[in-house]
């Protein structure tokens, strides 16, 4: 009996797993296909380099791209060092007790908090309490908070995965804790930390809700790099173009092209992360 049943189960399992993969792959192809198919005719180099014109029915997305890159940069400047340092402290220095476990759990949970909640928090703290106003600084800091838990969790995971024998060996040679970290632990953890950092940053880059109340604008006639000015951003632009514009059907091309640019930027970040990881791993094997 069992010899008969076994191949069937094998085949069913294979079918289920393979089918799931196929379905996911199909969705991915469809999403990318539809977006890029619909952006044909609009997406071009000049689309990337021009300002929007004619009541945002023509022209490009240059200031919007700049806004997104700028706000993402601000969020990264805040979240990357704090996130990585916190992870190092939690994993290497903090003693493992009920408090640190509670803090760790809270950080994990923060990663799952809806982004609109971060938006409200940013509004309450940065815009109102600290009186920064609705500006790119408030929005960047809010996005930074959003990516912090992702960066902390991934960095901690990366540090935890460094074999304890690397630490023991280094301690036994008379290294201080910081020397052990700097020479033997962090270099090995860097690829994992970078992955977390990029994940966190690209999540922040694509978010709309947290910047909605804190600094993003529908349209600005001039691009300013002042921290206290408002900014335009790709995800919000996409939202406006596909739901709020007075001529939605007329700007479909712009909307799809904006989506395509957002995807390409994300992809670019991930490719950079992979390249850095690859270089590090290669460096360590020699």
């Amino acid at each position: 009996m069992s010899s008969l049943r076994k191949p069937i189960i094998e085949k069913l399992t294979y079918g289920l797993l393979g089918g799931s993969f196929g379905l996911v792959f199909l969705c991915l192809v469809l999403i990318l296909g539809i977006i890029f198919y619909n952006s044909v005719g609009t997406l071009s180099l000049s689309f990337l380099l021009q300002n929007p014109t004619d009541g945002m029915t023509k022209g490009g997305i240059f200031p919007i791209m700049v806004g997104t890159i700028y706000v993402t940069l601000i969020s990264a400047i805040m979240s990357v060092p704090f996130g990585v340092f916190t992870a190092i402290y939690l994993n290497e220095y903090a003693s493992d007790n009920a408090y640190t476990r509670l803090i760790r759990l809270s950080i994990r949970n923060l990663a799952a908090v809806p982004s609109i909640v971060y938006g409200l928090f940013g509004l309450a703290i940065f815009v109102k309490a600290l009186n920064f106003g609705t500006c790119v600084l408030s929005a960047g800091l809010t996005l930074g908070l959003l990516s912090l838990p992702v960066i902390i969790a991934a960095s901690e995971e990366a540090l935890r995965n460094v074999p304890s024998s690397y630490r023991d060996g280094a301690f036994a040679l008379g290294l201080t804790q910081w020397q052990v970290l700097r020479k033997n632990v962090i270099p090995v953890a860097i690829p994992g930390i970078l992955t977390g950092v990029i994940l966190g940053i690209s999540r922040a880059m694509g978010e709309t809700a947290p910047i909605l109340f804190t600094g993003v604008a529908f349209f600005l006639p001039e691009t300013s790099l002042s921290l206290s000015s408002q900014f335009m951003a790709l995800p919000y632009h996409l939202y406006i173009m596909s739901t709020q514009h007075h001529d939605i059907d007329g700007v479909r091309g712009i909307a799809y092209s904006t989506a395509a640019v957002l995807i390409i930027l994300s992809l670019g970040l991930n490719i950079i992360a992979s390249l850095i990881r690859y270089t590090y791993q290669k460096g360590q094997q020699t």
Partner: peptide
């Protein structure tokens, strides 16, 4: 140590 632990 018990298990050889050369650094990477």
């Amino acid at each position: 140590f018990q298990k050889p632990n050369p650094f990477p």
